[in-house]
C-alpha cells in the first residue's frame, strides 16, 4: 500500500520489480494522422545503437592503415567474421547481401551490449523489434527468391524423391516449417534477452532485500550476489551468441532464396 503511494518516487530512483525495466516511456509526444509515432526511450536507444556502431566503424576505419591499429583490427575482424559467415552459408553469390547481414549483426550485437549497461533500455527485449527484423529478413528472402527464380522458388516446398501420394502432406509441412522461421527467429532473440534481464534483476533484487535484514541477511546475500555476477558473464555470452545465431540463420535463408533447389 505504501508502495503504491510512493510509486512516483520509486520510478525516479530504482524500481524494484523486474518488469519495469522494459517499460516504454514517451520522451517526445508525436502524433501524425491519428498514428502515435512518439519518440520513446526505445527509439532513443535504437538511434543510440545505430549512432554508436556507425561512429565506431567510421572512426576506426578512418585511418585506413595498411597495418591496422588495435581499433581498426576490431572493425576488420567484425567485417571478416560476417563475411566468412555469409560466404560459408550462401557462397560468393550471397555476398551481395553482405550489407544487410552486417547491419543486422552489428545492430543486434550493439543493442544487446547496450542492454548490459545498468539503467539502459534493451530494445531487443521487445518482441515487436525482433519480429520486425525477422519478418524483414523473411520478406526479403521471399521477394528475392521469386525475383531470382520465378515460380521455381516454390520448389523449396517440394522435396525431391517424395512419393506422389504424400506430396500434399509434405508440402503443407514444408510451408508450416517455412512460416515458423520468422517466429522462431524473433522469439528466440526476444525471449533470451528478456529472460536474461529478468533473472539478473531478480537475483540482484535478492541481494538488496536480504542485506536489508541485518548481518545474517548480508551473509546470506553473498550467494545471490555471486549468481548475479555469474549471470552477467552469461548475459554477455548470450548477447553475442544471439546476434551470431540471427546472422547465421539470415545467411541460411538467403541461401535458400539463391538456390531453392540444388
Amino acid at each position: 500500500m505504501i508502495r503504491a503511494d510512493h510509486f512516483e518516487e520509486d520510478e525516479a530512483t530504482v524500481a524494484n520489480d523486474p518488469i519495469s525495466q522494459f517499460n516504454i516511456s514517451k520522451l517526445l509526444q508525436l502524433d501524425v494522422g491519428g498514428y502515435d509515432i512518439s519518440f520513446t526511450n526505445s527509439s532513443l536507444f535504437m538511434v543510440a545503437t545505430v549512432a554508436a556502431s556507425a561512429a565506431f566503424l567510421i572512426f576506426t576505419t578512418s585511418g585506413r592503415g595498411l597495418i591496422p591499429s588495435r581499433l581498426q583490427s576490431i572493425s576488420e575482424m567484425l567485417y571478416e567474421f560476417v563475411a566468412g559467415l555469409l560466404r560459408d552459408s550462401a557462397g560468393s553469390e550471397g555476398m551481395k547481401f553482405f550489407p544487410i547481414v552486417f547491419s543486422l549483426f552489428t545492430f543486434i550485437l550493439v543493442a544487446n551490449l547496450f542492454g548490459m549497461f545498468p539503467y539502459f533500455f534493451t530494445i531487443t527485449s521487445h518482441i515487436i523489434v525482433t519480429a520486425a527484423l525477422a519478418f524483414g529478413v523473411i520478406g526479403m528472402v521471399i521477394i528475392y527468391g521469386f525475383y531470382k527464380n520465378g515460380l521455381g522458388f516454390l520448389k523449396l516446398f517440394v522435396p525431391s524423391g517424395v512419393p506422389g501420394v504424400l506430396i500434399p502432406v509434405v508440402v503443407l509441412i514444408e510451408v508450416i516449417s517455412f512460416l515458423s522461421r520468422p517466429i522462431s527467429l524473433s522469439v528466440r532473440l526476444f525471449a533470451n534477452v528478456l529472460a536474461g534481464h529478468i533473472t539478473l534483476k531478480v537475483f540482484a533484487g535478492f541481494v538488496v532485500s536480504l542485506s536489508g535484514l541485518g548481518l545474517g541477511g548480508v551473509i546470506g546475500a553473498i550467494l545471490p550476489l555471486a549468481f548475479a555476477v555469474a549471470l552477467t558473464g552469461l548475459e554477455f555470452l548470450v548477447a553475442f551468441l544471439q546476434a551470431y545465431v540471427f546472422a547465421i540463420l539470415t545467411c541460411m535463408y538467403i541461401n535458400d532464396a539463391i538456390h531453392p533447389s540444388h
Binding site: 515458423s180 517466429i183 522462431s184 522469439v187 528466440r188 533470451n192 545465431v245
Partner: peptide, 24 residues
C-alpha cells in the same frame, strides 16, 4: 561456439513449428 548457438536454436524451432501449425 557453434554448438551453443545450435542449442539456442533447437527449442525455439520446435515451439515455433507447433505454434504456427496451431495458429493456422
Amino acid at each position: 561456439k557453434a554448438g551453443i548457438a545450435q542449442a539456442f536454436r533447437l527449442s525455439s524451432e520446435f515451439i515455433a513449428g507447433v505454434v504456427v501449425g496451431g495458429g493456422i
